[in-house]
Design a protein around this nucleic acid. Sequence first.
DNA 1: CCACATAGTTAGGAATCCTATCTTTGTGGG
DNA 2: CCCACAAAGATAGGATTCCTAACTATGTGG
Lengths: 203, 203
Amino acid sequence: MENSPFDLTYQNQGVDGKIIAALERVSQAFRVLLWNESKAYSLSPIQVQVLIFLLHHTEEKRKVSYLANEFNMTKATISDTIKTLEQKTLITKTSETHDTRSYTIHLTPKGQEVAARTSLFAREIQAPIGRMHPADQENLLLSLFDIIRHLNKAGVITLQRMCFTCAYYRPRHGDTEHFCQLLHRNLENMQLRIDCPEHAYAQ
Amino acid sequence: MENSPFDLTYQNQGVDGKIIAALERVSQAFRVLLWNESKAYSLSPIQVQVLIFLLHHTEEKRKVSYLANEFNMTKATISDTIKTLEQKTLITKTSETHDTRSYTIHLTPKGQEVAARTSLFAREIQAPIGRMHPADQENLLLSLFDIIRHLNKAGVITLQRMCFTCAYYRPRHGDTEHFCQLLHRNLENMQLRIDCPEHAYAQ
DNA sequence: CCACATAGTTAGGAATCCTATCTTTGTGGG
DNA sequence: CCCACAAAGATAGGATTCCTAACTATGTGG
């Protein structure tokens, strides 16, 4: 065995190195899938992302500044994207608030249709996840939560709507229990949210 | 409890939906980190990726076509990137093979230095992984392997150097054991490679 | 009411990444 | 031997991404 010419601990492929490499592959897959989907509908990747976001989020989040923050881009970039989407009659703007500087973005019926269809771009990634054992799913999700939580603390990802960054969230018994002050109850691991519509920022 | 105005199974946030969303967040983090690192060294993201790849891979993989396949881009894009890197004296070309159409790319000392430094761009993601329990690391890695294997079969990711797509790989006892015909032995879960230098394609 | 912050737009430019078209070189029948 | 074809890479040109910087217009607070 010692005579093997191959070193099993080759290069930086410790466990964490392997996990990083694997996550990078998955990231690449997302990029490729999103790119393909975009081309299929003659849209840009960011346009598709915006459409999908609009499909799943409420009024107060459907603004230029919010989207810019969400996608780590400048307002200029989003402003441009919105202009294009409007020209394609996929969205409309309404300024129903009393702040006339701002407006809310809405999907047109056509926009909803496109958004619904393109939102399936990740279905290839969903398939193997659906086949996993529930226990493995739970472990995977918790690991990812952990990573994201760290990235959030480190300032890499600025915006979150996950429980751990919410004003209503209270850890109990040293992180093993999760109490939501809005729902007034403990959340199971699988009930923790990554995109909660009621998320409130801690000050 | 039933009176709660909030539906815990809100939107597509079943387990797999949450995992997809989480993976997307991590992907975004990679993008942001890579972008930051690029700007810090006045390079483009793809230039950084190429430099890092060159640092870790051998001769026969350091060619334009291989890189194009690796990063899911056209040869034109890579050709351009290489030209720029050469102008920046970060790489050199040598045509030591007998096929004079092609050449091999080498890092200059300066290129190695930059590559080594930028290769740390993912360290923020590595930190939380390093702190996880070994068992959780193993679960995470196996789950990601599973997803990538599927993406590979589905043709989303064309190129791999992981055991599951290798000509030397033989599953045993229904996927619970992994035999490498090159090493002539079973591999433990944690010995499975995601970027094996000896990977050979199955025909 | 004036200074300042905030929402969004515009202009201009660097960079990404493509398609399509080339040149050159290797390869495999007939 | 040669001719057709494939394969490696380069080049030109263009659509798109995404930025910075400067701008307009509106809200807010001492």
